[in-house]
Computed example of a mutant assay.
Amino acid sequence: MEGPGLSVGAVAHRLGVSASTLRTWDRRYGIGPSRRSEGAHRRYGAEDVARLEVMNRLILEGAPPGEAARVALGIPAPAAPRKPRGHGAGGKRVPLPAGSDRARGLARAAMALNGPAVLTAVREVLADEGVVPAWQGVLAPVLRGIGERYAATGEAVEVEHFLSALILACLAERAEPVDPANARPVLLACAPEEQHSLPLYALAAALAETGVAARNLGMRVPEKALADAVERIGPGAVFVWSQMHFTGDTGVLDRLPTGRPPLRVIAGGPGWRLPFPERVRYVATLEEAVAAVHECLGLVLPA
């Protein structure tokens, strides 16, 4: 996201809510725009929109707005009464089969809903290891481990939302390259009705780290809106994410405008239903996605 940011109307349209709803969230919960334009009008930056995406997703999943705002802002929950040792399956442990010390530390901070500790751990691993190694070796394994704990015990869904929100905010901080190598940006979007947008923020940050600029449309991008964006900016490549099976209609990819030169389309995520259209390239990992984007743009991936 460039320049002074987005207006309340633009963000409302993007999230599928009313402008009055966004103003209410700002007034009641303090989750609003942080930038100002030259005319002193308040504008939403990339981090603001990322937080609102998290809040909106949680509300759609049934969370009360106040709780959703707390998670999106990274505010720790009030301390709950301690359970007796041995209560429930696995206590507070998160399954991390090949977890590093950093992964275990991040998991402990997340399970404690310790926002400052989570932010410090995420920012440090991103800075020290780079986005792709941090995502594949620490962030994604911890998220998977917490998800597996929820699947096994029915516990810790609030931890998953809490951690996702803070990781998203940290990735959004790193999503703009200083001196972009690509004249035409890469367009990133979730498939229609797909709400899991965190992988897009990981890809945007990984691309920025290699000097590639991307425009992230976020979750639940309608087919027409994605096609309109392609025609409006003429991207060098389009990456579309589908995590849930019901969002993985590959016809959406096939119906994208072809353009001149031909549009390069990349798909990622486990939700897509085979087969893929001939012009679509599927990638299975963040590392593959970064390499595929560079290849589509005709750029050499930095060593």
Rank of each mutant, 00 (worst) to 15 (best):
P222S: 14
L15P: 07
L126K: 01
G145E: 03
A10Y: 07
L217W: 11
G248E: 04
E278K: 04
P180S: 11
A68H: 04
T210G: 01
A40F: 12
R232H: 09
Q195A: 12
E231C: 08
T285V: 03
G269N: 02
A291K: 07
A77P: 12
P199V: 09
N182H: 09
E223R: 13
G236D: 04
H87A: 13
G90A: 08
D48K: 05
S100T: 15
L256W: 08
L171D: 01
A229T: 11
L6A: 13
G105C: 10
E67S: 13
L171H: 07
T24S: 10
R104S: 05
Y201W: 12
R174Y: 12
E67L: 10
A183N: 01
E2K: 06
P33T: 08
L171P: 02
L73T: 06
L168T: 12
A77S: 14
V122C: 03
C170E: 15
L96G: 05
A63V: 08
A50I: 12
G30E: 09
N182R: 09
R27G: 02
V283Q: 04
P199L: 11
P192G: 11
A229H: 05
G5C: 08
L113K: 06
G259P: 01
G145N: 11
A40P: 03
A206R: 03
H87G: 08
V230Q: 08
A63D: 12
D228R: 10
T247G: 00
V49D: 05
V252H: 09
T21P: 03
G298P: 05
P270Y: 04
P192E: 07
S18D: 11
R260Y: 14
E155I: 06
E2W: 02
G99P: 07
I59R: 05
A109P: 00
S242L: 14
M219C: 10
G211N: 10
R51A: 14
Y44W: 11
R123C: 00
G99M: 06
G99Q: 06
R28W: 15
W135K: 00
A110R: 03
L143N: 02
P81C: 14
T21A: 11
H87I: 14
G271V: 14
A169M: 11
D26T: 08
S7T: 15
E53W: 09
P257L: 06
S34C: 10
E129K: 02
I167S: 00
A303K: 12
R108I: 08
E176G: 02
I31A: 05
P257R: 04
C190Q: 02
P180W: 14
G3N: 15
T210R: 13
D101I: 05
V125K: 01
M55P: 00
R184L: 05
N216L: 14
P261N: 14
E176Q: 13
A151D: 15
P4Q: 15
P78Q: 13
E209P: 01
P302A: 10
N114I: 14
E38R: 12
G298T: 14
P177G: 11
L15A: 08
L60G: 15
